[in-house]
Design a protein around this nucleic acid. Sequence first.
DNA 1: CTGAAAGCGCTTACAG
DNA 2: CTGAAAGCGCTTACAG
Lengths: 324, 324
Amino acid sequence: MSLATASRALGGGRSVAPENARKVLEAATRLRYTVDAAARAMNRGSDAIALLADDLATPAVAAVVAAMERRARTVDAFVTVSSTRGLPELQAATIRNLSGFRPRALVLTSTRISQDPSETRVLDELLAFERNGGRVILYGSGSVHLPFDAIAVDDRGSARLMGEHLARTGHRRAIILAGTRERAYAAARTSGYVEGLLAAGADVQDIRIVNCEVSRQGGFDATAQLIREGLGGTDVLVAINDTVAIGVLSACRAAGIDVPGQVSVTGFDDVPLARDLTPRLTTVALPFTDIGIRAIELAMRPRADEPARETFRGTLTVRDSTSG
Amino acid sequence: MSLATASRALGGGRSVAPENARKVLEAATRLRYTVDAAARAMNRGSDAIALLADDLATPAVAAVVAAMERRARTVDAFVTVSSTRGLPELQAATIRNLSGFRPRALVLTSTRISQDPSETRVLDELLAFERNGGRVILYGSGSVHLPFDAIAVDDRGSARLMGEHLARTGHRRAIILAGTRERAYAAARTSGYVEGLLAAGADVQDIRIVNCEVSRQGGFDATAQLIREGLGGTDVLVAINDTVAIGVLSACRAAGIDVPGQVSVTGFDDVPLARDLTPRLTTVALPFTDIGIRAIELAMRPRADEPARETFRGTLTVRDSTSG
DNA sequence: CTGAAAGCGCTTACAG
DNA sequence: CTGAAAGCGCTTACAG
């Protein structure tokens, strides 16, 4: 038996006589032999799937990564993660570094990929990677106009669900803690909230939108300020995501305002912490597990003519932070 | 000029005529050429430094990773992260996968590496990796008996600082939410708390140790239970880490117990969230940034005869969750 | 289904 | 300091 057959038995989907295949595999495990990843990568690419994220520390990213890892093991791949702080230069450099290892796919999740001239390098690297046979999957809003497979969340439609629910349960006067305009998802969620509220009978004049930093502190500060000004007859504080909602909750608590007795509070994402809060947070649950699984599936599938476009919608998750 | 000189100019620290070197570099940037990582890895190893962690989502790991990444860019290396859920089998498989890419170093952070027979495979893989020229750095307690560079935290000494401070500020009756015994760091911190408390005048009979799951929920449940039983004259609830402390705080809040008016609460780690809590959490700050930087430095340094042993101590950080 | 051979893109003794 | 050459450990047309 030759080196070639052994190689085929171990790696290729090529046909090998069953008996030979068995022998090879048996010998391999006996000798604790594993194919050298670098050498293999040089010829046919590696089994790695690399995820680039702005920040690894966010609960949403963590959830997606966990799902990806579980799924990857199932298909003989493994995932590796890098963080790029959302800086285009760092993203481009990282893509290039990683490309050298010929991962099967690169999955990017960032709010920053765009056709903005300063980010043209990121695009170039991605395109080059794909030209060399790699797959690229984008996750997140704002990526749909790019020529890559994309997984998106229907932020607007999902937020609408929350808006409708709130209006239907008697919440009329709403203040939306809307984050910052630069984040595409923030704008989409805000629109969705408003649409839903209006669709279920709220009056546009009773809806107020206030920007804030997208962080616990941002939610806290904005809410503290609102409380100082007087909440008036506000029925609900609608946060752009759970992290902001956590800040909102703290600010209410600090000011002695009962939630949901005096005012309701809602989030978006359904991070693990959401159900541990007091009161447990009413929110829109995003299917992070499904998203992670889907990312791996797209990564394993050969490139199609048309890029895939998948959209996930969140589900309304009513808990204790809202009245009605 | 030959291929060899070009290779040397680009990669090796080998001597190349300055003029030739300049030409090569110039041409490389003009052509946007980068050395193929897989091919280079085959010969001399790659510039990757791989971190394996039980869980990427914990604030402590996130802080260390961020510091590692920043530092790595400074020395022409880059960091890649994998999570292994603390499962020895997954750890071993991941080490093997990653080894194939010949990273410069593997840094492991886990509470689970031990000489426990079931984890012998992990050890074998690590040893094999090192034999092939890679560096391995262990971060976390319980790794000091292994033949690798190790970065440890002086959990006991750091916790002692907190114990002393508490006793000195009049806290006599303490309940320690001690996590679970299996985690080495938990036992060490508990001992440190007790030592410090005693050293500064507390009475051993006034100290109570209760185990709990190491999570927000664990802290919450244990505290809720304690409150049900009656806190009596308890002066302080000493949590094994910030995450547990967050649960303690919620439970107090839910029960209408004022912190620090009726009882003080402390944590350990100083995760970013700690200073955002209400009240801001008194805790022991661990130098995650220094730890991350050190990990990279050890990774870049050639293997020495004796493994390096570095220990970091936390610093007492008094905020608003303690009286006195 | 299988072997001999070429080649993947680099690096590094070796001899100069 | 530099070139020619061998080699890193695999994979894959190609011919059978």
